[in-house]
Simulated assay, not measured.
Amino acid sequence: MTSQPPPPTPPPAEPPAHPGPEAVPTCFRHPDRETYVRCQRCERPICPDCMRDAAVGHQCVECVREGNRAVRPAQAVFGGAAVAAPRVTWTLLVINVLAYAAEFVQPAQVLRQFEMWSFGVYQGEWWRLITSAFLHAPPPSLWHIVFNMWALYAIGPELERRLGSVRFATLYLLAALGGSVGIYLFGQEAVGASGAIYGLFGALFVVARRLGYDARGVLWLIGINVVLTFVVANISWQGHLGGLVTGTLVAAAFAYAPSRNRTVVQFGAAAAILLVLVLLVMLLPPTAYPGLPAITG
């Protein structure tokens, strides 16, 4: 019986090769950082500093930026940037309160220089047409400013979100001017934001109708306040009605402007209303002072 030769000895195992640098994925923006996470859109490796949360997984900074370019910015219902916080409303509230605080310090001087006075406007003191809309019945009376600021707080934010901040500010200031022009033409002197507030009432009615909401509640609100205007003493019906008419017209221009060239139509109409108000003051004398010439000097 012959013996079998022993089996050949296997060659020694070679040590595993160390992976080269190219085998370890690194962030495409930071090559010195290893990462095994890839962008869900471009599939490039990204490190934690370059990751941005997405609906599924993560995306890189470049893909997020590119995606934002393709997304149209949110808009208010009637144009303009969407309003997250009604900053114009809060600003108007602050200005009115600060002006009232100034009346506590020097009520006579503040009112004498800045209240709405028809003859003063006729003589060229045009600033009264706007400054008077930020003043109220002097201290210790509080009901005037409390009512107006409560109304601004209650309906201002909703209108600002619907119209956008710029359009809302335009509406408010034009309604305030319209109230002052009403006082100029048919009254003598007054103070208060009531013209602007009544303009917001009219705008709220227009916006509700345009959006298909039930506007009967707003109509009742306007009706009750108009009745109070003629029933309660020491209320300027000229300022209330002037602001109501102006605010309603401005809101109608904003709400019913065609989608094509909407911004041009809206602000063109606002400019036209402003021009009419200015011309009324320039070409007509206040009726409370008979005998004045038809055109101011």
Rank of each mutant, 00 (worst) to 15 (best):
P10H: 02
V191A: 06
N68A: 15
E158P: 09
Q109A: 14
V24H: 15
T263I: 06
R112Y: 12
P48F: 08
G239Q: 12
I130Y: 01
S236D: 09
R29H: 14
V37L: 11
G156L: 08
F114R: 04
L135S: 06
D32N: 13
G187N: 01
L221F: 13
M116I: 01
V281Y: 07
G243F: 03
L228C: 13
A253F: 06
P86R: 00
A271N: 13
V191D: 00
L200D: 04
A233P: 09
P21T: 08
A74D: 13
L200Y: 03
Y289M: 02
P25Y: 14
V191C: 04
I222K: 01
G67M: 05
A272D: 11
G291C: 04
R38H: 12
R72C: 07
P15M: 15
F201I: 04
T2C: 11
S236K: 02
I224T: 15
N148I: 03
L221T: 15
F104D: 10
Q106L: 13
N225I: 00
G156Q: 04
A251K: 01
Y184T: 02
G247C: 06
V281K: 02
R162K: 15
I222T: 11
T287V: 08
I197W: 10
R52V: 13
N234F: 06
L292D: 04
I130D: 00
A208Y: 03
L98V: 15
W127Y: 03
G80T: 05
A169Q: 01
H136P: 02
R44P: 03
L219W: 00
G291H: 07
P8I: 00
T26C: 15
A269Y: 07
N234C: 07
M51T: 13
P48C: 05
S118F: 04
C39I: 01
V83F: 07
Q109E: 14
L173D: 00
E189L: 08
C50V: 05
R260W: 13
H58P: 02
V105F: 10
G182E: 04
T246Q: 08
A154Y: 10
Q109L: 12
M149N: 14
G239F: 05
Q113V: 12
P7W: 00
I295Y: 04
V231P: 00
Y36F: 13
A133T: 02
V206D: 02
A70L: 14
I197C: 05
A85Q: 14
V276Q: 11
A255Q: 07
A269P: 04
A13P: 09
H240Y: 09
H136W: 00
L129P: 03
F104H: 14
G67F: 03
G80I: 02
A101N: 12
G20H: 15
A84F: 10
